[in-house]
Amino acid sequence: MIARMPPDHPLWPTEFPEQLNAMRAEMEAYYRALPRLLEDGEGGRYAVVKGDTVYGAWDTYRDARQRGGELFGMEQFMVQVVDARFLIGYGKWFGLASEKANAGAA
């Protein structure tokens, strides 16, 4: 059996993987924007994110990918489905507890 771990799974890592550093800004921007996206009824749609900016959400992954391509060409950007479960998974990395830990370390 091979399966993807859902973002609200109890085993979702608590530490941000350093292999994802190149996408950290986009992932954090997505996390910060997620409550607003959900409030706006964008759940299930696909958000386009580059740097610390979310450039809206589209009905399908393909539409979002196409929009990102129009905006950024061959540059890297992130397309992520708007899913409330990422509040839990990404919250472990970018949420309040993470901020407190980082402040404590500093």
């Binding site: 059996m1 091979i2 993807r4 799974h9 085993l11 530490e15 292999q19 994802l20």
Partner: peptide, 22 residues
């Protein structure tokens, strides 16, 4: 996009990832 893979009995992943693989 990145994600984490789960497989029964998989212990090769980093402990940080709960035994799953990035």
């Amino acid at each position: 996009q990145p994600g984490f893979i789960l497989a029964p009995g998989a212990t090769g992943g980093s402990p940080v990832f709960g035994g799953s693989s990035l």
